[in-house]
Design a protein around this nucleic acid. Structure first.
Lengths: 334, 334
DNA sequence: CTGTTAGCGCGTTCAT
DNA sequence: ATGAACGCGCTAACAG
């Protein structure tokens, strides 16, 4: 019971292999009648073409690789869904490569890694210049970056410095008494420093506005709610004057702060102003004002330019770069 | 600048293709000297073999597919890491297929989907009997299930009914006044009903112990902290007698309940006893007693039997099934 | 020990 | 409009 091949179909339909291939790929001429015969044979044998063989001869796989740093956040979940939606319309399949470890990165440095055998690659939040030798992704396939700026590659990104600046603007409308709750990224090749960019943008904007800002007002937390809660309690207890405006560099921290404020009987939106980043699905429920990164739009845009490039016939192609703006979602907290 | 092929290497080293192939695959005899020559040529040309061509002829890819329902939980993140760790030792690569949608499921029903072109498939938390026609995964490749029991396939799983029972046991040591906070799974082909299994196990155990249990004592929540928190407040407010013991069918809900209790000035571990499931990374920090599913052990076991099967030469192989026991992690909350 | 050759399953000429 | 033959890059089998 071996799997049927195109040869079996040809034999069954009393036709040449070429003809079968032609109806399979909708290429060249083939009469209506024989097409029907082919379809019937395919049906009967329950045949479907072998993608490996196809890949070998045509060089294409009808698949798109998506490389993500990890797979446990809403951000990347949204991204994967958005990309899959776009490419599946053109009957491309997605396959996910989480960059789990340094060992995996090494494997990804081989241009024959499976990752690069697909028709196109989406790299999300990857500091390509740090990860790959000479900053070059070892492939001749089409590549597009999401959530990352690059000089060399097509990319769809948001400027995290801008996010920090916008956060400052929002809070400054309420008070000059400002603090920040953020995460300190480890200094390794994997990080894209989104948190420190947001922080820097915030500080710059505040200082530009002529307000003094002491680095002591930046508090640290780990990326989990419990740590965010604990450190929020600390911030609030150390706060002498209210109201206070606090920029939490992601919504999760904003959540911790919201709960902490409630615990200390402080009113969010009056005693404590909070702005977060990301607009998580639950952010609405807790009335958190936030800067939403347009993940879906960004991802879909990236997917589209990737498909374009794949289907464009050879030749020079300009690098496409698109900066996406975060959107202020105004709710009760600020 | 085409990529070098094995032919180029052969030419460069003045050898036959066969010899190159032999050193590449460590098969057959090849003298030390020529091996060196080959290595040198490979180095100089920066050659690496084309996995597609390899796959076509040998039928193997050195890759393992992992199918997961989604990719945004710690549970699956842990699983992926655990599996990757095992298989990468044998220089297999992992590729992830999240079952994002019904459309994707359809694609997965084609035995030539890329998913099935790898050397082995790990399916996580997949109700195979509901997802595939006749309950058969359309492939002749080796398959093993994780976090799911099956009559037909090798599997490594935990019995979620047991988890509910154990939770009941723990809480009953503190009080007979019991409640549950859980999620109601939608009734579709994707769900594995872990939550209702845990609930049923709990209820059965309680009733077996001669304690009456009213279905009204089961409260529902969505799978996010905010909903868990809100519904926890509701539970606690509707509770007349303390202490109360509450089984939260996952740690996330336990977290919401912990925060809610604090909010209402109830002491966890005295007024309110809580037991959760999963032992998330932050569960320790909030002192949550929990039943840890041995994700890593389970996943690694599955990976190992998969590798075994792959490398075993043909012939009858018994189905391997291993049930893993959850581990009680005792902390302050119960 | 090493070279040669026949396919793996398919797409793509090139005849017809 | 269709069939035959070649080759994609590689491994396996067989000669030598």
């Amino acid at each position: 019971m071996k799997k049927p091949t195109i040869k079996d179909v040809a034999k069954k339909a009393n036709l040449g292999m070429g003809t079968i291939s032609r109806v399979l790929n909708n290429t060249g001429y083939v009469s209506k009648k024989t097409r029907k015969r082919v379809m019937k044979a395919i049906e009967e044998l329950n045949y479907s073409p072998d993608p490996t063989a196809r890949g070998l001869v045509s060089g294409t796989t009808n698949m798109i690789s998506i490389v993500v740093p990890m797979v446990r956040t809403e951000f990347y979940d949204r991204m994967l869904n958005a990309i899959d939606e776009i490419v599946s319309e053109k009957s491309y399949d997605t396959v996910i490569f989480p960059l789990l470890s340094k060992k995996r990165l090494e494997r990804f440095s081989d241009s024959n890694a499976f990752l690069y055998r697909t028709d196109g690659i989406v790299m999300a939040s990857m500091p390509v210049h740090k990860l790959f030798k000479d900053g070059i992704i070892p492939t001749d396939r089409n590549v597009v970056l999401v959530d990352m700026y690059s000089e060399r590659y097509d990319c769809a990104y948001v400027e995290n410095v801008d996010i920090g600046e916008e956060a400052a603007e929002v809070l400054l409308k309420h008070t000059d008494n400002l603090k920040v709750l953020t995460f300190i990224e480890p200094n390794n090749i994997f990080t894209t420093n989104v948190f420190s960019k947001r922080l820097n943008g915030f500080i710059n904007k505040v200082k530009d506005s002529g307000i003094s800002f002491n680095e002591d007002e930046v508090y640290h937390t780990e990326i989990n709610l419990h740590s965010a809660f604990n450190n929020s309690i600390k911030i609030l207890k150390q706060t002498k004057d209210f109201p206070v405006g606090i920029f939490t560099t992601c919504d999760l921290f904003g959540y911790g702060l919201t709960v902490a404020a409630k615990n200390l009987n402080l009113e969010v939106g009056k005693d404590v102003f909070i702005i977060g980043v990301d607009d998580q699905i639950w952010s609405k429920d807790i009335g958190l004002t936030t800067l939403k990164q347009p993940v879906e739009e960004m991802s879909q845009f990236a997917a589209e330019i990737l498909l374009n490039k794949i289907n464009k016939t050879e030749g020079y192609q300009e690098i496409v770069r698109k900066k996406f703006e975060s959107v202020l979602i105004k709710r009760d907290s600020a």
